[in-house]
């Protein structure tokens, strides 16, 4: 991600407005989240990055369960 790209990502379309972006650097959201392991409701441990390792993934952060 270029410096300009990061600024755009931080203050532009990604903040609340939303929209297509494409970045592939170490400080992308996907890179920051990739190594986090969370338990799935069924009990299985899931490394988040495994969801988009071989294909795209939509990941939704719920405001709360509801």
């Amino acid at each position: 991600m270029t410096k300009a790209g990061k600024e755009e990502l931080s203050g532009g379309q990604s903040r609340g407005i939303g929209g297509p972006v494409e970045w592939a650097m170490a400080d992308t959201f996907s890179a920051k989240l990739a190594n986090i392991v969370l338990p799935e409701a069924g009990g299985k441990q899931v490394r988040l990055g495994s969801l988009w390792e071989t294909g795209p993934a939509a990941l939704v952060f719920l405001r709360h369960y509801g």
Partner: peptide
């Protein structure tokens, strides 16, 4: 209950394809 959410689409190679962070 005050936590805000977000929606992402990520691609292989840790590419951010879509980012929406709730305001």
């Amino acid at each position: 209950p005050f936590q805000l959410g977000a929606s992402f689409v990520f691609g292989p190679g840790n590419r951010d394809l879509f980012v929406h962070i709730s305001r």
